[in-house]
Amino acid sequence: MNERTREYLRGRFGDHYRRSDIALPPAASAREWGFIPFTAGPGTTMIRHKSLLDLGDLSAFLVDTCPRHVYFSAGQYDDPGTRPMEDKEWRGSDLVFDLDGDHLPNVDPEADTYAEMLSACKDALLRLLGFLHDDFGFDSEQLSVVFSGGRGYHVHVRTESVRTLGRDARREIVEYVLGAGIDDIDRLTRTETVAGMGRSTPAEKKTLKTDGGWGRRVHDRLVALTESVQTAEKAGAIEQLRAFDGIGEKGAAKLYETMTERPAEIIAGNLDAAGRYTPKLAQQLFEQAVAEDSVPIDEPVTTDVNRLIRLPGSLHGGSGLLVTPLDHEEIEAFDPFEDAVPSTFEDAEIRIETEQAVELGRIGEERDKIPAGNHTVQESVGVFLMARGRAEKAPE
């Protein structure tokens, strides 16, 4: 980024902040603040260990400083502006989740467009919210969802039940959402001793936990498979069951018999319903559930009680997009390339220079590929490309 581009962006970021009324996070004065200015050179300089008292009025600070990035801490402290960290006297922290589109297993940052990456990230966000609602019992009032302005989304959990959780407890939450550490279906079952059943000694009965969590996800798949088998021709159903590893002709026939003649046992989560084949099938359905339902959150963000996170309402210095807080009912329809474009950059056109052709994808109203050279573009597009290092501001 050359000096002309840097000063242009700095000035326009300042114009945005003059027009904005940015809300403070809860307990703002107990949090550490940090920012990255528009500095010369290829690197960036983080200025942190600031309290809100150090910054003064937030709106005035943003207008005067025009930072490239703005952050506040997940943690709350007695003395947030001091250093080192241990002298701040930690009180507790929000539970924060970070989803980055270019870190998702089904995204190729080299091949997928920015829009495709963010679409995949929204899918992951919805899965994460499912975990937080269904598995952990948080309601929408306790969850703050934010488009990061860059590669994905942040979710802040703010409730007394999580504030004082340490790193180890937060890591357990991460592992649960990732489906890590549950490598055996036995972890999702309950075992009880039952008498009779034609035996001279008591026997153990294994039942899948179906009331929630990963057990419910496996059970949902088991029930769906049973329903599919029931509606298929026998030959096709047998073939469908044989597609699972370790399920041969005999095992498929046993499962088919159970699913069509005694489906209530499957619906009840009975893992002994088809002998040794039911747990073998359930194990593979669990692995499928982890592959499809787990959420690849950024573990260091969630486990770090001192983490700095982007300020909603600020601008992301790597895209020029708005760090956008979202109501839960807005998430499905949210389009970052329309809804996170600052109004400051919507109405004007500017000249930019590009050394290489740029596959724009979609920002604002423009959806074209920009060839190398000097071009007039919508300002939101120009700011996006300049902030990402794909273009420079052309001389007037």
Rank of each mutant, 00 (worst) to 15 (best):
Y8H: 10
D15E: 14
H16L: 09
Y17I: 03
R18L: 01
L24F: 12
A27L: 14
A27V: 08
T39W: 13
A40C: 12
M46S: 01
K50V: 01
L55Y: 05
C66G: 03
P67E: 06
P67N: 10
H69K: 13
H69Q: 12
S73K: 10
G75L: 07
Y77W: 07
D79C: 11
T82L: 03
R83C: 08
R91C: 12
D94I: 09
F97P: 15
V107S: 00
E116A: 15
S119Q: 10
S119E: 15
D123Q: 15
A124R: 13
L126A: 05
L132V: 05
D135Y: 11
D135I: 14
S144W: 06
V146W: 05
F147V: 06
G149V: 08
G150T: 06
H154N: 08
R170A: 02
R171G: 09
R171T: 12
G181Q: 10
G198D: 01
G198S: 04
E204A: 08
K205E: 00
K206M: 04
K206L: 09
L208Q: 05
T210W: 08
W214S: 03
V218W: 04
E227H: 06
T231M: 14
E233V: 00
Q240V: 02
R242M: 13
A243S: 14
G248Q: 10
K250I: 11
A253K: 11
T260K: 10
T260I: 10
G269I: 01
N270H: 01
T278K: 02
Q284Y: 05
F286H: 15
F286E: 03
V290Q: 09
S294D: 06
D298Q: 06
E299M: 15
V301L: 09
V305Y: 09
V305W: 00
R310K: 13
G313N: 08
G318V: 02
L321I: 09
T324P: 12
D327N: 05
H328N: 06
I331L: 02
F334Q: 02
V341S: 01
P342N: 06
F345A: 04
D347T: 15
E353W: 12
E353K: 03
T354F: 04
E359L: 13
L360A: 07
T376G: 03
T376R: 13
L385V: 05
G389A: 04
A394C: 09
E396S: 13
